[in-house]
Amino acid sequence: MQLFSTFENNIYLEIAISSLEGVGIKQEAIYAVPLDNRTEKRKVFDTLHRSDGTSLIDIGVGLATAFSVIGASIGFELRWGPIFCGLIAAFIGFVIGFAIRLFTEVILNKRKLLKGKKSEVIVIIDCEKAQCEVVENILWEHFALGVAKVE
Rank of each mutant, 00 (worst) to 15 (best):
Q131A: 12
A66K: 04
A90W: 01
A90E: 02
I15G: 00
H49G: 07
S19C: 01
F67H: 06
E40H: 07
I17Y: 03
F67S: 14
R42N: 14
G146S: 15
I92L: 15
A89L: 12
Y31Q: 04
K41A: 14
I30P: 02
E136Y: 01
F94W: 02
F76A: 01
I59N: 15
A90I: 07
K26A: 11
L13P: 02
P34I: 15
R42S: 15
V95K: 05
S119K: 08
Y31I: 05
A89H: 03
V44D: 07
V23S: 12
I25S: 05
L108E: 09
K26T: 12
V135S: 05
G93D: 05
I11T: 08
I96Q: 02
D58Y: 00
K115V: 13
E8P: 01
Q131C: 01
T104H: 09
Y12M: 09
S19A: 07
V23W: 14
A99K: 03
I100Q: 07
K110S: 15
I74F: 04
V123D: 03
F103D: 07
G97R: 04
L56K: 08
C85R: 03
K43L: 11
I122L: 13
V147P: 03
A29G: 00
E141H: 05
W80Q: 14
Y12N: 14
E136D: 10
A144N: 04
G62P: 09
K112H: 14
I125M: 00
G81P: 09
L113E: 15
V135H: 04
G60K: 04
I138L: 08
K41P: 05
E14S: 13
S119F: 00
H49L: 12
E77D: 06
G116Y: 14
V121A: 08
Y31G: 01
L48I: 11
E133S: 14
E141I: 00
A72S: 14
G60H: 02
S68I: 08
V33L: 13
T65V: 15
E136M: 06
L113C: 05
I107S: 08
I57L: 04
S18Y: 06
V69F: 02
C85G: 05
I70M: 10
Y31L: 06
G53S: 12
G116V: 12
L87K: 02
K118C: 06
